[in-house]
Simulated assay, not measured.
Amino acid sequence: MTQFRPKYVTFDCYGTLTNFDMAGAARRVYGERLSPEAMTGFVEAFRGYRLDEVLGPWKPFLEVVHNSIERSCKRIGIAFKPEDAQRIYDEVPTWGPHPDVPAGLSRVAKEIPLVILSNSMNNLIMSNVEKLGAPIHMVITAEEVGAYKPLMKGFEYMLDKLGCGPEDITHVSSSFRYDLMTAYDLGIKSKVWVNRGHEPANPYYEYTEIKDIGGLAAAVGLETALKRA
């Protein structure tokens, strides 16, 4: 565990803090229409197309979901209905945190400001943030930035808004492809990977691994200080 104590701890929200259940939502909509094998293929296609959809010019997140579902339907060979994409999108603000998040975040928030950089919309994210159970210093969305992660623009915007450099923060995510690869390329040395099982480990990107947010205090050098308090 690194003992670097950052000025800010910055986070991905969806998947890392919020239990971002896109796979479950897709199964709730399409599970009765597809065989188990086809459903597995649909979920994987939906995951891949979501990433592809955020790599171009910014668009509302509903369009990201809509286009990803439409492309997944085409790939699997079933009819696409716009109301199905809307139904999945409408689930997003109802999702709360992973069970380990409220206590783990609260421990760190007592000492270091917490910042969220999320691939979300201004009117969507706050419902999820309010469920985290800890004070958040700042929330920045892809809508505010005009770009989605893994593009660098959001990270650069965040650093400018915080008035600090990459050497001043610890960035926390469960995803290499959306967050930690970009953080590495931008020179953010202090990175924490929350191993939620979304992606395999990749030590090339020089991070501290934790199994859940309960391990974050130690990863940012607070464990000893908190024990002494």
Rank of each mutant, 00 (worst) to 15 (best):
L105G: 01
R87L: 13
I76N: 11
V115T: 14
G48C: 03
S106A: 15
D168L: 08
P113C: 09
S118R: 05
P113A: 08
E167F: 01
L132Q: 02
N119T: 02
C13L: 15
P36M: 03
L159V: 07
V108M: 07
R196M: 09
G146F: 06
Y157P: 00
E144G: 03
L55A: 09
R50L: 10
I78M: 13
G165R: 05
S118G: 11
A45K: 10
L117E: 13
A45N: 12
P99F: 05
T2E: 12
E53M: 15
H66M: 07
M22S: 12
P93A: 06
R75T: 08
M138R: 15
N128M: 03
Y14T: 00
G56E: 05
L226K: 09
Y204H: 14
E209T: 10
S106N: 08
M158W: 00
D185Q: 09
Q3A: 14
R196K: 15
H171D: 00
I213W: 06
D52M: 08
H66F: 13
D84W: 09
A225D: 11
E223Q: 14
Q3P: 01
R177Y: 06
G146P: 08
E53S: 13
S120Q: 10
E206K: 15
A142R: 02
T208P: 01
G31W: 07
Y148S: 08
F155P: 04
Y157M: 04
H98V: 08
K189R: 14
M22F: 15
T170S: 11
S175R: 04
G133R: 05
V101H: 08
A218M: 10
E32C: 01
L124Q: 13
D21C: 02
Y178Q: 12
N195G: 03
G77E: 07
K81G: 00
S120I: 06
G146C: 08
V115L: 11
L34N: 02
E206A: 14
M1C: 13
S35H: 02
K74G: 14
Y30F: 15
R27N: 05
E144F: 03
A147N: 05
V43P: 03
D168F: 09
R107H: 04
R50H: 14
D100G: 06
M121S: 14
M1Y: 11
K110A: 15
R28F: 01
K59M: 10
Y89E: 11
I78S: 11
N128Q: 13
A134R: 02
L186D: 03
K110Q: 14
W193E: 04
P150Q: 04
E83N: 03
M39W: 03
